[in-house]
Design a protein around this nucleic acid. Structure first.
Length: 322
DNA sequence: GAGGCGTGGAA
DNA sequence: TTTCCAAGCCT
């Protein structure tokens, strides 16, 4: 869960997960759709599928006993170099050196490494390995990560509070705050599309997305293609022909590699045709487990229905947690 | 090796 | 508002 995700964001998800599935066998026995539902809103959904698959592998191939060696941990789906080392060191007290973004930053500054990431990764890892003590490697790693998260921060590092100030090459050279250097990132393009909120008998039509790719395996409100420029023939991509009404709201959402703007169309069907997908009562849509972008669509539809009355003002449209 | 893959908080 | 980026992994 913590892969590319902050502790504050993860915390409630972690607590729900461990309450639902306290033991590895519980998670292994759970239907994958329920795991995806509990993950909804956390992002990077392949992690959920991988976590579930990893639980099954531990239950079946390792007799329910979690492996402790990095090499074996690496064979679990979703477990890469960082996670394998973190589990070995933190959970099992092995000598291992997990290197996350924090530790990369601390190492780059401490040793004034000016090589840009990701090329500098091997060097930064070697530097961290050289500092790893024989005992309590897990505590050492967590100490470095906490130092990076609270003192040696990406911007405006608090060097005056840093226990390593006296030996930090980056600080001595006056470049600590500019490290690590990074290769330039591609700009985030804009995409647009149309979402179709079809209701019938107090229910809303949802579909499950294909297991891989963007929002893989998650529920969605039906949408047309997401492409550059305004949607072409939006109603031609609607799940059914109907009296689609474009709502005076627009949903905006930022993904890892593009920015999305959705027009929202609404229509009322006469009956819940099961051939179209899942018909979920409005009151249960939140609990059904929707990615954030799809929750925004439903919130916008709920806002936009009310004849232009209601909260929302101007661009950006309705927004509401839940 | 480079790009796909969510979301939210902070500056 | 925009940018950065977080306990990365997979293809």
């Amino acid at each position: 869960m913590l892969q590319q995700t902050t502790v504050g964001t993860v915390k409630p998800f972690f607590q729900r997960f461990t309450a639902l599935w306290p033991a590895i066998e519980d998670l292994a026995d759970a239907p994958v759709d329920e795991v995806m539902r509990a993950w909804a809103g956390l992002g990077y959904y392949s992690r959920a599928r991988n976590l579930h698959a990893a639980a099954r592998r531990v239950a079946e191939d390792f007799g329910g006993v979690f492996p402790a060696a990095e090499e074996q941990l690496r064979t679990l789906p979703g477990v890469g170099p960082y996670t394998a080392a973190a589990i070995a060191a933190i959970a099992f007290g092995r000598k291992a050196t997990p290197v996350d973004g924090n530790i990369e930053r601390v190492m780059a500054r401490l040793h004034a490494v000016e090589t840009p990431l990701p090329k500098a990764k091997p060097e930064l890892k070697a530097l961290a390995e050289g500092l790893t003590p024989q005992k309590r490697a897990g505590d050492f790693a967590q100490a470095l990560m906490d130092l990076g998260a609270t003192v040696c921060t990406p911007k405006n590092p608090a060097c005056l509070s840093c226990p390593l100030m006296a030996i930090c090459e980056g600080r001595r050279l006056g470049i600590a705050g500019t490290l690590p250097r990074r290769a330039g990132k591609a700009a985030r393009p804009d995409r647009q599309g149309a979402a179709f909120v079809l209701t019938a008998d107090g229910r809303v039509l949802l579909r499950r997305r294909p297991p891989r790719g963007l929002l893989g395996g998650m529920l969605e409100v039906p949408t047309g293609p997401w492409a550059a420029g305004p949607p072409q023939d939006p109603e031609g991509h609607a799940p059914v022909a109907a009296a689609w009404q474009r709502l005076p709201v627009r949903v905006e959402h930022v993904f890892t590699h593009f920015r999305l703007t959705l027009d929202v169309y609404a229509a009322e069907a006469e009956a819940c045709d099961p051939g179209l997908g899942l018909w979920v009562p409005w009151s249960e849509a939140a609990a059904a487990g929707l990615p954030s972008v799809m929750r925004k669509v439903l919130a916008a539809a709920a806002d936009g229905q009310g004849d232009g009355r209601g909260r929302r003002a101007g661009r950006g449209g309705g927004r509401r947690g839940r």
